Simulated assay, not measured.
Amino acid sequence: MARFSKNISRLYLVKISKWFNLVMPVVVLFYQDNGMGMHEIFVLKAIYSLAIVFLEIPSGWMADVWGRKKTLILGTILGSAGFLMYSFSYGFWAFVAAEIVLGAGHSFVSGADSAMLYESLKADRKSGSYVKHEGRITSAGNFAEAIAGITAGFLAAVSLRTPFYFQFAVAALAIPAAFTLTEPQIKATTHIHSVKKIVGDIKNTFLKETNLRVSILLSAVTGTATLTFAWLVQPYFKIIGLPVELFGLLWTVLNLSVGVSSAFAYRFEGRFSRRNEVLFIVILLALGYFSSGLLISREGLVFLLLFYIVRGLATPVFKNYINLYTPDEIRATILSVRNLIIRISFAVIGPLLGWMTDHVSLNTAFILAGGIYLIAALAVVSPWMKSGK
């Protein structure tokens, strides 16, 4: 009997509550309505990213030591509290406090959710279906984000604070879902209760475990590329003269395309050798960057769509590579390492591409980003390419 199958639906709800973002489409207007300029807005988002960076590894370690369920409960409570704080806050420093709480909530959920999913399936002897479920959960998140983009406009018409009230309610739905999870029993081969031990495990991963190192770096480099691309989409819309009212519609279409391809990622994985799977995804993502940079026009929107479709395949497939090579007792920590690398990499490359967009051209930013991704990804997977296994 599948004892842990109910965890799947709970994790769907956690993902949907996280991605059903009613705030994002109008958050800049909200900040400006509260007397903030763009500089303060970017400082605020930098603080959010720093909160995630500082807590990413500790939260993963806590998930491995304290338990995935307890960590997810804490993360969902903090995530809800952050939006509650926003609902009744005014001014920069009050928003800083809310962003720190939201960043902490994100960190405690990140990594623990994928670890809980994999271990629930493994406990029911269904770990082979991980990509299928990870893809569907990712898909559910993207569908939620797409629907939220449309809904947010109607809520903002009432007031710019109304989306925050509803966002708190949506985020709070994840709390009972986390409480009703069933923690699988992990058969740890070693004790990891010391920080020294977990630091040693991470160091050992990057120095000795080639397959796991390649899997983490490949997933992280690709995650950075997809995150960076998302921030270049709206400038693309603006340059081609797209009416503002169509921004939300096309944003919804792009997110729906990720949702559809993620849902069917499990059908893609295993049809080719791992080497060909990796090359297929990496080359198509790089082509998405290059093509978008060379053809900035309404016809070029098809390349944005191509990129997002391949992105939907990449996330669950590359995460599964990490899970295949990771010991159960440090799974959440290793997945948090992936997320940490993405945040740090984006913090380095994002400002460079932003400067390039402002002072050179958006075309150059796309092509530079594509080149960086292609070189980095191929360098990361070179041990696999050379081995031919």
Rank of each mutant, 00 (worst) to 15 (best):
Lys386His: 09
Ala265Asp: 06
Ile344Pro: 07
Ser110Trp: 01
Pro184Trp: 01
Leu256Thr: 11
Gly293His: 04
Gly241Ala: 07
Asn204Met: 09
Lys126Asp: 15
Leu287Ile: 13
Thr189Asp: 09
Gln167Arg: 11
Val199Thr: 12
Leu284Phe: 07
Phe42Ala: 10
Trp93Gly: 12
Leu304Gln: 05
Gly370Ile: 01
Ile216Glu: 05
Leu78Val: 07
Gly371Pro: 01
Phe154Pro: 12
Pro383Leu: 06
Gln32Tyr: 06
Arg161His: 02
Val96Trp: 11
Leu181Ala: 00
Leu285His: 06
Phe83Trp: 13
Phe168Arg: 12
Ala230Lys: 11
Ile341Met: 04
Tyr90Arg: 15
Phe154Ile: 13
Leu352Lys: 02
Arg161Trp: 04
Gly312Leu: 15
Ser9Val: 15
Tyr236Met: 05
Thr189Lys: 11
Lys196Tyr: 05
Pro58Ser: 06
Val221Arg: 12
Val302Phe: 09
Lys70Thr: 00
Ser297His: 15
Ile202Met: 04
Lys187Val: 11
Leu324Asp: 05
Thr189Cys: 02
Asp201Cys: 08
Gly312Gln: 10
Met24Asn: 12
Ala314Trp: 02
Gly371His: 07
Asn276Cys: 01
Val348Asp: 09
Glu245Cys: 02
Ala332Tyr: 00
Ser114Cys: 00
Ala112Leu: 08
Leu22Val: 04
Tyr266Ser: 15
Ser87Gly: 13
Ile330Val: 13
Thr151Tyr: 05
Trp384Ile: 14
Arg10Thr: 00
Ala81Tyr: 01
Trp66Pro: 00
Val101Thr: 14
Ser257Tyr: 06
Gly288Lys: 11
Thr138Arg: 08
Thr71Lys: 06
Val282Lys: 04
Leu368Tyr: 02
Val244Tyr: 07
Gly75Arg: 01
Leu249His: 05
Val109Phe: 03
Leu256Arg: 03
Ser159Trp: 03
Gly60His: 01
Pro184Ala: 05
Gly388Pro: 15
Val337Thr: 02
Phe54Glu: 13
Leu155Ile: 06
Pro235Gln: 09
Val65Asn: 10
Glu299Gly: 08
Ile309Trp: 04
Ser107Arg: 00
Leu301His: 07
Phe164Thr: 02
Gly35Ile: 08
Ser89Thr: 14
Ile342Pro: 01
Pro235Arg: 05
Phe290Met: 14
Ile16Met: 11
Gly128Glu: 14
Asp358Tyr: 02
Val195Ala: 12
Asp33Tyr: 06
Leu217Met: 14
Val43Glu: 14
Val233Lys: 08
